[in-house]
């Protein structure tokens, strides 16, 4: 193995998402084909885990209607050109879809110094125009449910372990 170029490009989550869904469809089509067999197990594991991550609130990839298409990046760049944001900031805006100044603040460095309130609102409006707005209520509900479910699973598991220990004892 020889590394030719440690970092030849940066990808947005949407690009990774499209690649992985295609990959998944391809590996599903292999099922039952004896000559091809299954895709490597470690690949199936990581693809499933990342897709789970992408579908989980508050990721825009899991929201409806689906906010991205093949022209989204172009449109976003065109709308945000006047604000002279860095590449890293654009990537994070693509991935996280901040729709409020408080959220934008974490992404844009020195935001208060670079943009006044009107400009901040203009950036947020431009993002909402291209990527749409999340359904805040549903998103929060999903996050709360996810947390509850995970906590329950954990306590169930602990209970089970205790039972097993009782039987052993």
């Amino acid at each position: 193995m020889k590394i030719l170029e440690a970092q030849s490009a940066q990808l947005t989550n949407y690009e990774v998402f499209t690649h992985l869904t295609e990959l998944k469809a391809k590996s599903n089509a292999r099922k039952g084909n004896r000559a091809l067999g299954r895709a490597p197990g470690n690949l199936e594991t990581v693809v499933k885990e990342i897709l789970d991550y992408f579908y989980e609130a508050p990721s825009p990839l899991g929201s409806k209607p689906f906010p991205y298409d093949s022209n989204t990046i172009k449109r976003l760049l065109a709308r945000l050109r006047e604000f002279r944001l860095t590449k890293a900031e654009i990537i994070m805006i693509m991935n996280l879809r901040p729709t409020k100044p408080e959220n934008l603040n974490t992404i844009i460095e020195e935001m208060e110094g670079r943009f006044d309130d009107d400009q901040q609102m203009a950036i947020v409006a431009a993002i909402a125009e291209v990527l749409g707005k999340p359904d805040g209520e549903a998103e929060r509900q999903a996050m709360t449910d996810n947390a509850k479910e995970a906590r329950k699973e954990k306590s169930d598991m602990e209970l089970k372990q205790e039972e097993v220990m009782d039987i052993d004892g």
Binding site: Q7, S8, Q10, T12, V16
Partner: peptide, 25 residues
């Protein structure tokens, strides 16, 4: 969050895999 890395490597194809297409293997 995600990047692309360019790598050169040697791939060895086992005879039992020759039924599949080269690209797939």
């Amino acid at each position: 969050m995600f990047i692309l890395t360019k790598i050169a490597d040697l791939v060895q194809i086992h005879p039992q895999d020759l039924e599949k297409s080269h690209a797939q293997v």
